[in-house]
């Protein structure tokens, strides 16, 4: 595990935080968009297992983690103060696929990992920028990091469940409108019902669809076999080594409830 110093851990919205970790550049250089890391949150073994997070951005020697408090681990993380030292392991998992002419669909905190993709696709060398970003959340307050995301000059379509900003309704409605006009590859991350809908849309409009999945995981490096995702073939894929991004057609969608 590597050590990093917390340089900020600020509240972006209700239950959503942005954590900055100062770490050696050499280590951060090895991270690619789509990969994740595990952060050891408590030294007293509760929570016991380090938690996985996607990489929101990297600026020089600062690693940005955008996270939502959803349980014991993220609650404890939100209480970590500036100046504290934390341990992390990474990069883990496979990077995003190197695709062109695609759209991003993010639901809620699912936006987190796409910031780093935008950063790394500016020079169109290893990764390419999306044509459009579709980003939905429950309310206006939960649409976070918009100034940062807008910096990249890519059209962003927003939606909220309550209509407090952007289109009132589900982001998948907006994605469907787009696909009707212009079928293109989808890269999606968000809650399971959203991913399921996106997979259905991908099938309907016959476009390649990539889903960024989430499960509880322990080792993150293929040792424990704990983080399985059922495949269409009837076997199991392992999120930490085969993912976290999967082609929707490979996954047994019954898993996405």
């Amino acid at each position: 595990m590597y050590q990093g110093k917390v340089v900020f851990n600020i509240k972006e919205a209700d239950n959503i935080y942005l954590l900055g970790i100062e770490a050696p550049k050499k280590i951060l250089k090895s991270f690619k968009p789509g990969q994740f890391l595990k952060i050891k949150i408590d030294k007293r073994f509760d929570p016991l297992i380090p938690r996985p997070f996607s990489i929101h951005a990297i600026d020089e020697n600062i690693l940005y983690i955008l996270y939502q408090v959803v349980g014991k681990g993220t609650k404890a993380l939100s209480e970590i103060k500036k100046g504290e030292i934390i341990e992390f392991l990474g990069p883990l998992g496979k990077p995003f696929p190197k695709i062109k002419n695609y759209i991003i669909c993010a639901g809620g905190i699912g936006i987190a990992g796409f910031g780093f993709l935008l950063q790394k696709s500016v020079n169109k060398k290893d990764f390419y920028p999306p044509e459009k970003i579709f980003y939905g959340a429950k309310t206006k307050n939960e649409l976070v990091r918009l100034p940062f995301l807008k910096k990249f000059g890519i059209p962003i379509k927003l939606s909220t469940d309550d209509g407090s900003k952007g289109y009132k309704g589900l982001i998948t409605d907006m994605v469907e409108k787009e696909l009707k006009k212009n079928p293109q590859i989808i890269l999606a991350c968000g809650p399971q019902p959203m991913l399921k809908k996106i997979a259905e849309l991908g099938e309907k409009y016959k476009v390649k669809t990539y889903l960024v999945m989430e499960t509880f995981l322990a080792c993150g490096i293929g040792f424990c076999m704990g983080c399985v995702i059922p495949s269409k073939k009837g076997n199991y894929l392992h999120l930490c080594i085969d993912g976290p991004t999967f082609l929707a057609e490979e996954i047994d969608l019954g898993f996405l409830s």
Partner: peptide, 23 residues
């Protein structure tokens, strides 16, 4: 052996329950 269906893990206070199934 393909192992057990998910979920295969559950964290408890200071512990971990696994249901891997000897994959």
């Amino acid at each position: 052996r393909k192992g057990n269906p998910p979920p295969r893990l559950f964290e408890t206070p200071c512990g971990l329950i696994n249901f891997i199934g000897v994959e």
